[in-house]
Amino acid sequence: MNALAANHLGRRKRTDLVFRVLAAASAVMVLLALLLILGTILWKSVPALSLSMLTRTPKGGFYLGREGGILNAIVGSVYLALGATALALLLSLPVVLYLNVYKGRTSKTAVWTRFFLDVLWGVPSIVIGAFGFVIMLALGLRASLLAGILTVALLEFPIMSRAIDEVMRLVPRELKDASASLGATRFETAVKVLVRQTAPGILTGVLLAMGRGIGDAASVLFTAGFTDRVPGSLADPAATLPLAIFFQLGTPFPEVQERAYASAAILTLIILVISLAARAMNRKVNRHVVK
């Protein structure tokens, strides 16, 4: 090796080293940010965290009350997220299957549908909330669990559709052809082959959307209402964890503010449980996927 090549190699190695250090630094920064958020929430919530936070409804009003728990918001959020996610899935799957089974890759309809879904994804949740409010009034509903579910489903729908769509587009054409060549209709191919092949992706999309739905405050601000009671029916108003945080943090009393952090910790915990459950389920739905 001559001197020039050696010199050149030395420079390439230095460049490589610089990038490796930079990449590692960003990884550490992201991890640090996450730990700081979790740490702050947990540390601030310690004074207020207790079993009764989880098991009791508020005493003395959610705004001023320093007693009781936030069972109303926990149950409200879970109902709302489950309902909205189920509804969004009912809307998303047909749309995505339509795009991927009935429409070709270059179809104009498909291109435009994807574009509109992307636009809808980008609409701020407060705007979705305001829209939900208008729809709610038009349908003659009051602020209620049902109105909240409808609005949050609208928020989740584009996220879920596009997430599932991305994995369905990766299904090789030959797999669809294999099913078709056995005499399957497009519907049979969609339901029996595509859904199975993309099951892990569907699960991811559903949970991504659910995580977004359960944590969103703006979309439920006008539509779900807020109450101290656990909702007993779809027509009842429902408290939610993001709004509980919002209201409690807005009070001038430190004791109530601590409760806001406790609510935040519980919300984070719920999302963590959802993610872990997804990981556990993933192994099961992955079993038959053809690589």
Partner: peptide, 11 residues
Amino acid sequence: GLLSQRPQVLP
């Protein structure tokens, strides 16, 4: 019955 270039088993 069709046999393709690469076998495509169903999931």
